[in-house]
Structure formats: C-alpha cells, structure tokens
C-alpha cells in the first residue's frame, strides 16, 4: 500500500498554473524523487503536501487518511516532516534547542505546567534532550551541540535541518534540495545520510537538482514539467525515457538518437 497518494492535484497563482492535475503514489520505505526544471512546481507541490498552501483541487492522502487542507502542524502530527530549500533554521537558538523543538510532538507539557516546573517537566526535558542528541549524532552533528545555530556553516545547517525534521519522528520526510550549495564531499555524505534515513524505515520524498545524486539515491523518480507529470519510473527507466531526454535536452535529441 502506498504511503502517500496524490490525485488530481492542482494549484495556480493569479492565473499561472503551478501544478496541474497531478497524480502519483509514493510507496512506503523508498526514496522517491521529484525532478524537473526550475519552475516545474516542485516546491509548490511540497508546500501543498505539508499544508502551507491549500490546493485548488485534488486530494492528498497520507497513511490512507485525507490530509488535504490541514494546517501544517496537524500534518506534522500525522507523521510528515520536511526541510526547506532556503534554510528555515531557528537562528535565535542553540543547535540542541533547534532539534529539541523537533521533539515538540513527542512531549506534552503545556505553558502553565512548564512555568511552575511541576515534577514531570524535568523528566520530560531529559527525554527531549536525549532524543535530540540521538538525532544530532545520527546526522553526525554531535560536536556542534552547544553552539548557536547562527554560528554554523551552510553545509552543517543543511544537516541540522534534517536532524530537526527527524526529531519529529516522521513516517515521511520531504527534503527540498538537500544538496543545493554543497561541495562534492558534502554531497556524498548527504547521499549516505538519505540512504540511512530510508534504512530506518522512513520514506523519503526528495526534490533535488543534482541529477547524479538523484539517480544514485532514488528508488523511483517522478519527472515534472510545467506542473504535470512527464514520466515516472526507476532511475534507469527515467534515464532512457525519450520524453525526459527531450524535455531536458531540447530538440537536439531528435538528431542524436
């Protein structure tokens, strides 16, 4: 059974169509990539899946439940987490606190209990602290624990965003261009990290421009063009798909083949 089912999804902004009647399914436990040229609607798709934008039409089903139009924090509570293309770090907080925010859904205490520091709080804090440190270690960030997020270099911040998203405890992780701006070494690390996330049983939905990374890391790939589905399949199917090659390389293909 598919973890995520998208059917007839459409969204336009002031007459410009971003996503048009899109349909696809993400199987559980895989790395599923969405590729396409700039402006193909990838980030719009992510924003709809995570509840930031409301779709004009269509349905999004996650774990066999309708999540279309739910607020982002409700979507997150159902087990969907994400990272952002342009970093959305909490720069006013420490690295550890950033990830501890990710544990928000795994802890319960409210404003008043916290203000009075009732007994349960200390235990809960310790638990959140432990979870956060685990995810930091998983993403190879343990040596930055006590630093302020604002003091970290870009490549580290990219991984910190992932650690924070993992702390939510997601079934599905949406990653929006995790390798953008990384050098080759960092990209290789990122590739390993994505596979390790998948091995933990977390399904990964990936948007990425680095084709090498996409081809190496993905189980299946969806190609978007002008907001609709151009092709879908395994990496080798996609690499040999005429329509994809045409879209990416233009008319020259006619002569090349």
């Amino acid at each position: 059974m598919a973890l995520l089912e998208i059917d007839g999804l459409s969204k336009s902004f002031g007459g410009v169509t971003a996503i048009a009647d899109l349909r696809f399914e993400v199987p559980k436990g895989q790395v599923y990539s969405v590729i396409g040229p700039n402006g193909a609607g990838k980030t719009t798709l992510f924003n709809m899946l995570s509840g930031i934008y409301r779709p004009d039409e269509g349905s999004i089903r996650f774990q066999e439940r309708e999540i279309t139009g739910l607020q982002p924090h409700k979507v997150a509570a159902m087990g969907l987490s994400r990272t952002f293309q342009n970093l959305q770090m909490f720069f006013n907080m420490s690295v550890l606190d950033n990830v501890m925010v990710g544990c928000h859904l795994r802890t319960r205490s409210g404003l008043f209990r916290a203000a009075l520091r009732l007994p349960g709080i200390v235990r809960e804090e310790r638990e959140a602290n432990r979870l956060a440190r685990e995810e930091l270690t998983f993403c190879d960030l343990e040596r930055f624990v006590d630093l302020e997020a604002g003091a970290l270099p870009y490549g580290v911040l990219k991984r910190l965003e992932i650690a924070r998203a993992l702390a939510v405890g997601p079934q599905l992780l949406l990653m929006d261009e995790p390798a953008a701006g990384l050098n080759d070494t960092e990209t290789a690390e990122m590739q390993r990290l994505i596979r390790r996330i998948c091995e933990r049983g977390i399904t990964v939905l990936l948007v990425e421009h680095d084709m090498g990374l996409v081809m190496r890391v993905s189980d299946r790939i969806l190609v978007l063009d002008y907001g609709s589905r151009l092709a879908e399949g395994t990496p080798s199917e996609i690499q040999n798909d005429r329509r994809v090659i045409e879209a990416y390389l233009g008319g020259e293909v006619q002569y090349a083949v």
Binding site: Q71, V101, R108, R164
Partner: peptide
Amino acid sequence: SRSGRALRALHGSEVAAEMM
C-alpha cells in the same frame, strides 16, 4: 521548556515551527 522553545522557534521561523 517545551513551550518556551516553541515561542523562540516561532520567532526564528514561523513556517518551520509549524512544520515541527
């Protein structure tokens, strides 16, 4: 505390806070 972090997160990035 948890709520305090939520407050600060809100200041840092509202979308990211929602996503958490």
